[in-house]
């Protein structure tokens, strides 16, 4: 009995871990690699969540044949929409502020407020839910006491696939080399022949697109409101900083430990006490290791 509770609680933690990681991946690229503090990152996630909601409505009303599979389509559309919007924001705002990090913080915070109000005006203040296809709703019962929801499993699979893709893009392609070179030394990267303005634009777009996918995944575990994304932004920054800003492995490890601590302690005490425990632990660890869990050791 006790083991079953542990297992299910651990699985709840795993679902939180997935959304946190999907959010943090985008932010790890934008904040960790580019050093841009994007306070509107949560709203890009909301863009993905509303996109999924809209597609679920559309498929129910006009394309019943699609109802079962729209979720996969919405992942792709969320990525493209949030990514395209990210490119636009980069072009109009972020690229003018690369040398002014604190101004970026203010500007993106303003952007997040504007976007939240935009969502409220278009979709209303009430939370909406994408209708999940039936096959996503059931659960797997490996034993009588354990109940593992299928939507959670799908989100885990999605997260694993996307993480692998991000790793591939950053560490096995020429684009990834350009990104990492630009983030380390922008003027030198340009003098080596890299079009750094283009790299910045694409990196920001990619990060925002990933947030959009996180939004699509989010619809399977919660309902979408104008401020759904902003509820995650603090946790997400925490994940990136705790993991070590430059390290993707660190991001994964820290998202996992934060989500699991949160989920397991939540079971034994109230939600806010669980938060207190998690945050205190993070603060203590960051006091000892200010560079985060994983930091590359090289001569600089």
């Amino acid at each position: 009995m006790n083991a079953a509770i542990w297992a299910m609680q651990a699985f709840t933690g795993l679902s939180t871990f997935c959304v946190l990681l999907l959010m943090a991946l985008g932010l790890a690229i934008i904040f960790g690699q580019m050093g841009v503090i994007n306070m509107a990152h949560g709203e890009f996630m909301t863009v993905g969540a509303y996109t999924t909601y809209l597609l679920s409505e559309v498929s129910q009303r006009w394309l019943p044949g699609l109802t079962n599979w729209y979720f996969f389509l919405s992942i792709a559309v969320s990525f493209l929409l949030a990514g395209a919007f990210g490119l636009l924001v980069e072009h109009l705002m972020i690229r003018k502020l690369y040398r002014r990090p604190l101004d970026t913080l203010l500007a993106t915070w303003g952007l997040s407020l504007i976007m939240q109000q935009g969502f409220r005006s278009v979709f209303g203040a009430r939370e909406v839910s994408a209708k999940l296809p039936d096959w996503l709703m059931g659960s797997v019962k490996p034993s009588a006491a354990i109940d593992i929801p299928i939507n959670g499993l799908v989100v885990i699979g999605l997260t694993a696939a996307l993480t692998a893709l991000v790793f591939f893009a950053l560490f096995s392609t020429r684009f990834g080399i350009d990104v990492r070179a630009t983030m380390q030394n922008r003027p030198m990267a340009s003098a080596a022949g890299i079009n750094t303005a283009r790299v910045d634009r694409l990196t920001f777009g990619l990060g925002c697109g990933l947030a959009g996918v996180a939004g699509a995944a989010f619809t399977t575990i919660g309902s979408t409101g104008p401020t759904s994304g902003s509820a995650y932004i603090v946790d997400t920054f925490l994940v990136v900083v705790f993991g070590g800003a430059q390290s993707l492995f660190g991001t994964i490890a820290s998202a996992f430990s934060i989500a699991q601590t949160q989920a397991t302690t939540e079971f034994f005490m109230t939600g806010s006490m669980a938060k207190v425990v998690t945050l205190s632990a993070i603060i203590l660890i960051l006091m000892v290791r200010p560079q985060g869990l994983f930091a590359l050791k090289v001569r600089r």
Binding site: I177, N185, A191, A192, G193
Partner: peptide, 30 residues
């Protein structure tokens, strides 16, 4: 600068300025 590189200039800065966390091969690839 990157446009000049495309036209046939190349630059080795004072202090070398290699990308420290990239591997040697990746540095050349940039």
């Amino acid at each position: 600068p990157f446009e000049r590189v495309a036209l046939g200039l190349a630059y080795v800065p004072q202090g070398r300025m290699v990308f420290p966390t990239l591997t040697v091969e990746e540095n050349v690839q940039t």
